[in-house]
Amino acid sequence: MTMTVALDVSASDTATDAAVTLSGVQKVFGHGARAVTALDGVDLTVEPGEFVCLLGASGCGKTTVLNLIAGLDRPTGGDIALTTTRPAVMFQEAALMPWLTASGNVELPLRLAGVKKPARRERAAELLNLVRLGGVGDKRPHELSGGMRQRVALARALASTVDADEGAVSLLLMDEPFSALDAITRDVLQGELLRVWRATGPAVVFVTHDVREAVRLGQRVVLLSSRPGRVVREWNVNGLSGVEEARVIDDVNARLREVISSHAAA
């Protein structure tokens, strides 16, 4: 097995100006007879500022893709190239540090990066304002609702990128960030995410198993097959609404069902 991992621009010539480039990425868990191929030859390019939704049924390795891009795991084969050394990452759980205030949580990545206190205070306040939580900086996570916690997590993720000269975020990775929320909160937060994305302009890779969410949020929807995960099809869903949007949703659902059904036969 060859393993070539390139995590920055200088090490790879495949990444010209795309925010993320995956070429032939393979991931195998375990060894020998018990080995499970999670991903097999995933190719994906995300342009700067583009909002891409990765969609798939359970076990399609969409979370694995995200972990590989985030650098939490290493691919078994293939290349991953990013323009940033540290993307902003958000998980399904807010996973805020319970001993820190909301503001302390947003400041944490800045503290780790050695930013001085007044500067990080200012940046944290700015980011909390961006997610409309300017007034709750002093509150602890347990004093906030699930939706508010997830927005603090978003602010914290945005604070963690280091390639930002002027506080610009180049890549945001999200792993089913709204799937643990109730439907009303999810709906409002989807709108909030779009607003924040338009305001800050990062490339977004958004993992979800919710077709409707993917079509509403993304400019492009990428469907992954399951075991092993491969890119099955892509849809350009930029600016769709009404009848067209409903038609694409039906189309994606139909393809998704085909993918799932193929496992019943096998």
Binding site: A70, G71, L72, R86, P87, V89, F91, E93, A95, M97, L108, P109, L112, A113, R156, A157, S160, V162
Partner: peptide, 10 residues
């Protein structure tokens, strides 16, 4: 999840 968050926060 907390150590993982720590890692992605750098």
């Amino acid at each position: 999840i907390l150590p993982r968050v720590g890692k992605v926060l750098g």
